[in-house]
Write a protein that binds this DNA or RNA. Structure first.
Lengths: 231, 231
DNA sequence: GCCACGCTTCGGTCCTGGTCGAAGCATGGG
DNA sequence: CCCATGCTTCGACCAGGACCGAAGCGTGGC
């Protein structure tokens, strides 16, 4: 059985703390410079440069040079999905980065999963959309209903299904271990949540922080967000 | 951003060739002994023992002791899914284990993805089920239709949806880069394909080998399987 | 044209971790 | 009871790779 693609190369890239921290920082979806990533990973610029070259060669990162800055982004949603999947396994095995700190609950409550909402809020949102009859759950397969299409339009989400990306997709949440909503609709809803000022992303983290009125509006639309998901 | 689960531990486990080979061997879904896995990975029993202990501690493997044999299986479908996801990234980046050998095309043609059919045959099967109106594809979300339910019953697949496992699930195929069918139905169909004698799994590999009449029967039910998927 | 800045390359150090030989410990058969 | 088998533990070896200091090389500002 020495066939098929070589998982080792990719996994080894993800297996180093410095590189994993860089990639985690990019899970927010935004582009960061080499220097910012070096600081994020807690290493010098030289070391970071080496890591970034490896990640780029491995197809996990995309580099765009602008002036004297090198901007990096994840090479695609695939990368983010694979990392989330690994996070699920890690969480189940109880592998935490550190002793859970004060900001960890915030991460579990609402965070960005590359381009859509995850955590308690993300799971609650999908639950609401299903119970409201806006998304149909055919034994784990999600489909947008006519009512859901109307809701998306009213909410201001553009559903142009450009490319082959599915409209609705279930994405397994590592903190709640249930599905939240990904796909075009998931990304569009989060974008609108930002635009409406309901929430903003905390700089340098994946945490999505709701304002007090924003949370009220969110819960009015999608129902209450349960408080505790941590064990 | 030093929050959330520690991906590093899991990824580092997958990042070693010996461990990755062991896990790959277990992707067939069957249980293997420590000695078999050692041979599979090309290392001595001592080294294998160390690796297996790490994989077990990391929650990727389950050990069952029977007499003086230690049988190992993947800890769950999650593990297989995560590995497939990494394989997708690796394949896109062109990371092959070796120069593609003579058996590599067979692997791309039909292989087992833990418990369901993947490769050209797997993708063709899902395509057929959709075009036959047995599975509905709502922009990437798969749902079994009434016709599909009847077909499954006639084909001899039991659809008891025990646990929370979805009936139909799209699983991205690393070799074809399109979806094949996972979920309860996907696993059930492969089981029936074995039972009907259409195909069998080659020992020690993930290759699913169709017999000549078996392939004819398969193609009569699901339409022709395209020959080439390799680049 | 000079310097500051961002990043990369080079060279060297250090250490984690994979590896095997040998010994230890169970299980099962004769 | 003794031996073969399957696996684990211990100890030591060695290499790959992470890391940083220093130097090199572009870009942009003055």
């Amino acid at each position: 059985m020495r066939l098929g693609p070589d998982i080792t190369r990719i996994a080894a890239l993800l297996g180093d703390p410095a590189r994993a921290n860089m990639l985690s920082a990019l899970m927010s979806g935004e582009a960061l410079t080499a220097g910012e990533l070096a600081r994020e990973a807690g290493v010098t610029a030289q070391t970071a440069s080496s890591h970034l070259a490896q990640l780029e060669a491995g197809g996990l990162l995309t580099r765009r040079i602008q002036g004297r800055h090198n901007y990096f982004t994840l090479a695609g949603r695939d990368v983010a999905e694979a990392m989330e999947h690994l996070a699920l396994l890690a969480d189940r095995a109880g592998h935490m980065r550190t002793r859970p700190g004060p900001r960890d609950p915030a991460l579990r409550r609402a965070r960005v999963c590359y381009d859509h909402l995850a955590g308690d809020a993300g799971v609650a949102m999908l639950d609401a959309l299903i119970s409201q009859g806006r998304i149909a759950d055919h034994e784990g397969a999600l489909a947008l209903t006519d009512a859901g299409r109307a809701f998306a339009r009213d909410f201001g989400v553009c559903l142009e299904t450009t490319g082959r990306r599915p409209l609705c997709k279930a994405c397994l949440d590592w903190s709640v271990r249930r599905s939240h909503l990904a796909g075009v609709l998931g990304a569009g809803l989060l974008a609108r949540i930002y635009e409406l000022g309901w929430a903003r992303r905390l700089d340098g983290t994946r945490i999505v922080a709701f304002s007090a009125p924003g949370l009220r509006a969110f819960e009015q639309t999608f129902g209450p967000v349960p408080a505790a998901s941590g064990a």
